[in-house]
Design a protein around this nucleic acid. Structure first.
Length: 597
RNA sequence: GGUUCCGUAGCUCAGCUGGAUAGAGCAACAGCCUUCUAAGCUGUGGGUCGCAGGUUCGAAUCCUGCCGGAAUCGCCA
C-alpha cells in the first residue's frame, strides 16, 4: 500500500476516535508538500477544525502526534499555521527505488478489462497537404491514445478520411483541365502537394471567372460564385462521381492514390499511425436509417418540402437540419451513421473525437441527437476539442499563403537540429545514418514537445520567425538529460549496472536524491491524471520538472566518482530509473530519446 | 445578437476538482567547464493573476456582471 493511502486510513481512524465523527473524504486533503517546507506529504487541517473544536495549530499538532504513532513510515512532522507536514522515513524512499529500479515499464499500467476506447484523429481532406493545424491534431490524438493505453485501456486509433465531396472535385477538375498528364513522378512532387496545387489552381481560375462575370454581367460576387462555369462543372463532376461514372472514378482513384502516398510519408515521419481507416466515400450514405428511426420515434420531424429536422431548442440549441429536402445527407447525417458504425465495430466505452474547437457546436448537436435516439453510446461520445494554432499575424489562411506546411516545418526543425548539434561539435564520430537519425529525433522532439506542452483547449501561437527553442523547457532539454544519464550508464557498463544491488544506509540519502525519488514516485499518478484529463501537457510538464530535478542532482553530486561505493551504486540505480521514466514519459508524447546528443 | 472557449511577468506558457510567500522558459544582466555531456547549473530584476462584486477561515482557481479576444450560429464540411 502506498504511504498516502496508509496516512488517509489512519486519519479516518484517528478522527473517529478523537473527534467522535466520520470525516467525509472531501475534507481529507493530503497533497505533496511544497518545496519550501520540510516534509513529504501535507494535510490541510483547516477543513477539520470545526469537527476538532480546537485551533488549526492544536488540531494539526494532535493529528501529527497520532499519525506518527500509527503510521510506521512517518518519521517526523511539523506544523505551520493550519498545515501539517509529514516526513516519511528515508527507508521508504529507498525501498521504492529498490522496488522499481529494474522495471523497464515503470509507471505503465497493465491492460485492464474495461470496454475499449476509440480515438479518432487526423481526419484529413484529400485535396490539400497537411499543415501545422493537422500536426497539432495528429500529435494530440496519437499522444492521448498512448496515454490511455499506458493507463490500462484497450485503445483503437481510427482515421476518418474525407475523400469525397465538392472540394475533391475541384482539384480533379483543375487537373483534368490544366494538368496535362502531370503526375508526381513527372513533376517530382509529393502526391499530396501536387493535388493541393491543383486545388489552389482551381480557386485562382475561379476567381478570374468571378471577376469577369461581375464586370460583364454586373452581378454580385455571391451570384457570380454560383454561376461561374467552373463551379458548375465541379458540381456536375460531383454528380458524375455519385453516379460512379467510370472516367470520373478513375481520376478520383488516381489522384486520391497520390494523396495517400504523400500522407503516408508525412504520417510516417511524424510517427503517428492508425488501427483502422474509414473513408467517407464508404460512409457518407450512412445515417439515413437513424434519421428514419428518429422520425418513427417521433423525435425528428419532416417539413413540407421533405427535409428532416430535429428541434433542440429545449436543450439550449436550435433546430437543426438532418436530411435535405432531396433526401441527401448533410455532414451530421453521416456523423450519426459513423458513430453507429464505430459502436458496432468496437463496442467502445468511450469514443473520443480529436477535432478542432471550431466544431464545438456540431459535436454538441451530434451528442444531443444521439441522446434523443436513446443510443447507448451517446454518453460515450467525447469531443476532444483543441484550440487553433495561430501565427503572429493571426489565423493561417491558405488564400494568403500563410499556411505552415507540415513537411516544410519538419524539414526546418531537423535542419535546426543539425545546425545546433554541429555547432556544439558533439557528433563528429557519428556516421551519416546515425547523424540523420539523431537530427530527426531532436528536430521532431522539439516540435512535438512545443505543441504538446500546451493545454489542448487553448489556442496557441507559433512564430515561424523565432522558430522553436532548444534550450529551457523544451524537448531537446529533456532528451539531453536522458543522453547524459545514458552516458553515465554506458561508462559504468551495462552488465555491471544490471547486477547492482542497492544497500546504501538510509541516513546517507541527501535532499537532492530525496527530491528526485519523490518526483519519480509521482509518475504513475501523473499518468493517471493525464489519462483522466486526456491531457498530454501534464506528462510534458511532469517530465520537465523531473529533468530539472535530475540536473540539479547531477550538478551537485557525482555518480561514478563518488568514493563511497554504496552511495555510488545507489546513484547509478537512481539515474537508471530516472532515465527509464524519462523514456517512458516521452514515449507517451510520441517523442524518442537519443543515447547520445 | 445567442452559445461556447480563452484573458496569469515584455514574449511563450504552467498553476484552475479552493489551501502556505502566484511558478517556469525565452529575452536582459551577473556568475559556474583541469571532475560522469555547459542543449546544463546558480543568482538578480520583472505581477492591480482583464475589471468589479459575491461565496469562504482562505479565491488566479467557484458564482454573477462587465470589458477584451477567438470560434460558432448554412439544405458547407
Amino acid at each position: 500500500m502506498k504511504a498516502e493511502e496508509k496516512i488517509l486510513n489512519a486519519l479516518e481512524m484517528i478522527i473517529r476516535d478523537e473527534f467522535g465523527a466520520d470525516a467525509p473524504a472531501s475534507l481529507l486533503s493530503v497533497q505533496k508538500t511544497r518545496k519550501e517546507f520540510e516534509g513529504d506529504f501535507t494535510l490541510v487541517v483547516f477543513p477539520l477544525v470545526k469537527m476538532a473544536r480546537r485551533s488549526p495549530e492544536q488540531a494539526a499538532e494532535m493529528l501529527g502526534k497520532a499519525l506518527l504513532e500509527k503510521v510506521p513510515e512517518i518519521s517526523d512532522f511539523n506544523v505551520i499555521k493550519g498545515f501539517l507536514n509529514l516526513s516519511l522515513k528515508p527507508e521508504y524512499w529507498l525501498d521504492f527505488l529498490k522496488e522499481e529500479m529494474n522495471n523497464t515499464s515503470y509507471g505503465i499500467a497493465p491492460q485492464g478489462d474495461d470496454a475499449p476506447v476509440v480515438v479518432e484523429y487526423s481526419s484529413p481532406n484529400t485535396n490539400k497537404p497537411l499543415h501545422l493545424g493537422h500536426i497539432r491534431n495528429n500529435l494530440l490524438g496519437y499522444s492521448v491514445a498512448s496515454i490511455l493505453e499506458a493507463s490500462g485501456k484497450k485503445v483503437h486509433k481510427v482515421n476518418l478520411v474525407n475523400d469525397r465531396g465538392i472540394h475533391i472535385c475541384k482539384s480533379m477538375l483543375a487537373w483534368m483541365k490544366f494538368g496535362g498528364e502531370e503526375t508526381p513522378e513527372s513533376s517530382m512532387k509529393k502526391g499530396d502537394k501536387l493535388v493541393g496545387d491543383y486545388y489552389v489552381r482551381f480557386e485562382a481560375e475561379l476567381r478570374k471567372q468571378v471577376k469577369g462575370l461581375m464586370e460583364t454581367e454586373g452581378i454580385s460576387e455571391e451570384e457570380a460564385r454560383k454561376e461561374a462555369p467552373l463551379i458548375q462543372e465541379a458540381q456536375s463532376l460531383l454528380r458524375k462521381w455519385e453516379q460512379r461514372e467510370p472516367r470520373t472514378m478513375a481520376v478520383w482513384e488516381l489522384m486520391n492514390g497520390w494523396v495517400y502516398e504523400g500522407f503516408d510519408a508525412t504520417y510516417h515521419r511524424l510517427g503517428v499511425d492508425f488501427d483502422k481507416i474509414y473513408y467517407e466515400s464508404e460512409t457518407y450514405l450512412l445515417g439515413k436509417d437513424l434519421v428514419k428511426e428518429g422520425l418513427e420515434k417521433g423525435v425528428f420531424h419532416k417539413r413540407e418540402d421533405g427535409s428532416v429536422w430535429v428541434d433542440l431548442t429545449a436543450e439550449g440549441l436550435d433546430e437543426k437540419l438532418l436530411l435535405r429536402s432531396d433526401a441527401t445527407s448533410v455532414y451530421i447525417t453521416q456523423d450519426l451513421g459513423t458513430a453507429q458504425l464505430r459502436y458496432d465495430d468496437f463496442k467502445p466505452g468511450k469514443m473520443i473525437y480529436v477535432v478542432g474547437n471550431e466544431q464545438n457546436y456540431h459535436f454538441d448537436v451530434l451528442q444531443k441527437v444521439l441522446a434523443k435516439l436513446e443510443k447507448p453510446y451517446a454518453d460515450a461520445l467525447y469531443h476532444l476539442s483543441y484550440g487553433m494554432v495561430e501565427l503572429p499575424e493571426g489565423k493561417m489562411k491558405s488564400r494568403e499563403g500563410t499556411v505552415v506546411d507540415a513537411d516544410d516545418l519538419m524539414d526546418e526543425m531537423v535542419e535546426t537540429a543539425r545546425r545546433t548539434t554541429e555547432e556544439l561539435g558533439k557528433v563528429q564520430d557519428f556516421n551519416e545514418e546515425e547523424k540523420a537519425n539523431l537530427f530527426h529525433i531532436i528536430g521532431l522532439g522539439a516540435l512535438k514537445y512545443f505543441i504538446l506542452k500546451v493545454d489542448p483547449k487553448k489556442n496557441m501561437l507559433f512564430n515561424p520567425a523565432e522558430s522553436i527553442d532548444f534550450n529551457g523547457n523544451t524537448g531537446p532539454f529533456i532528451q539531453y538529460t536522458y543522453a547524459r544519464i545514458r552516458s553515465i550508464l554506458r561508462t559504468a557498463g551495462q552488465e555491471q549496472v544490471a547486477a547492482i544491488r542497492v544497500s546504501m544506509a538510509a541516513e546517507k540519502l541527501n535532499p537532492r536524491e530525496r527530491n528526485l525519488l519523490r518526483s519519480l514516485y509521482e509518475f504513475p499518478s501523473v499518468l493517471g491524471e493525464a489519462a483522466e484529463q486526456l491531457s498530454p501537457s501534464e506528462i510534458a510538464n511532469y517530465t520537465y520538472e523531473l529533468c530539472k530535478e535530475f540536473n540539479q542532482f547531477y550538478h551537485e553530486h557525482s555518480v561514478l566518482n563518488e568514493p563511497d561505493r554504496e552511495i555510488s551504486y545507489f546513484r547509478i540505480k537512481l539515474s537508471q530509473l530516472t532515465a527509464q521514466t524519462i523514456k517512458n514519459a516521452m514515449a507517451l508524447l510520441g517523442i524518442e530519446v537519443p543515447e547520445r546528443m
